[in-house]
Design a protein around this nucleic acid. Structure first.
Length: 274
DNA sequence: ACAATTACCTGTATGC
DNA sequence: TGCATACAGGTAATTG
């Protein structure tokens, strides 16, 4: 599932091919994936726009277009955003195809159709959908241990749920949340406010480490995720707890547990995570 | 005001 | 073999 490292990888792999390309036309196969504006307006507005740059905020990918427009995408669970040749076969669940002035195509494919597209003016970016209440970027150098401590302070919810709350920290999903808690040696059920400064420091470092490792490995491809060129990542080969329920902990050998926290499956080692 | 639950979707795995 | 059921999880909407 695309989390921060996956969206970052999609952004990085698409960028060299999209900068200064003009969107010649757009074909919408499933209008429902476009939240705003209505599909006709979307088509009319985006046609002839130039892609100036690509960005990311949390799990949102952002295309900065000419004339002050922004195309925002959220891949949710099964979304794929790939650049292909125009004669590549159209995959099932292809909902939107953007054809560029060099005839290559940017295709929005999403089996479960949870993903969403938004086209807004630049000045509306920070007030669109979930972007308007997104927490800080965990990999931003300005994000310090002190900020994580403030986020945890006074919150009685399990630390796992705090990590998943996009309004508190942006971009962490179920896979990386489990991984960073294991790296930090912190039990995911612990109330966020109960973490000592020492534990918060470890979690801060583990957060950076696991997210940066995900980016270095081009993302985690467990099922659907691929990068902008359609390639799978390799980070699934380096996961220490996610998807390893009942298998031995790589540190102590005890069987890993799988429980539900806030309705999400949670993988951890009750021996190594206190 | 806030927390918990449900809706949105479809493919895959499991049980009988 | 076939059918029903559970599960995957990010976010918005709804309910409590």
């Amino acid at each position: 599932m695309p989390e921060l490292p996956e969206v970052e990888t999609v952004k990085r792999t698409l960028t060299p091919y999209l900068i200064n390309k003009r969107i010649a036309r757009v074909k919408i196969y499933h209008p429902g994936v476009i939240t705003i504006p209505d599909p006709d307006t979307f088509s009319n507005l985006i046609t002839e726009k130039i892609i100036k740059s690509l960005g990311r905020r949390g799990k949102y990918i952002i295309f900065h277009l000419s004339e002050g427009y922004c195309l925002i995408g959220h891949l949710r669970m099964t979304g794929q955003l790939t650049l292909t040749s125009p004669d590549a076969p159209l995959l099932p669940h292809t909902h939107v195809v953007f054809t560029l002035d060099n005839d290559s195509q940017l295709r929005w494919v999403d089996t479960r159709r949870f993903g969403r597209l938004y086209l807004v003016k630049e000045e509306e970016l920070s007030t669109t959908a979930g972007l308007k209440k997104l927490g800080p970027e965990p990999l931003d150098p300005a994000f310090k241990v002190k900020d994580l401590a403030n986020i945890c302070s006074g919150r009685k919810k399990p630390i796992k749920q705090v990590l998943l709350d996009q309004t508190l920290i942006a971009g962490i999903g179920n896979i990386y949340a489990d991984e960073m808690l294991f790296l930090a040696g912190v039990d995911p059920r612990r109330a966020a406010s109960s973490l000592t400064l020492e534990e918060i420091k470890r979690l801060y470092e583990a957060m950076k480490t696991s997210l940066e490792q995900g980016i270095k490995n081009n993302g985690t491809s467990i099922r659907d995720y691929v990068d902008g060129s359609g390639k799978r990542g390799s980070n699934q080969d380096f996961l220490k707890v996610y998807g390893r329920a009942n298998k031995p902990c790589l540190f102590c050998g005890e069987p890993l547990l799988r429980i539900k926290i806030g309705g999400r499956s949670t993988h951890f080692c009750s021996h190594c995570q206190k």
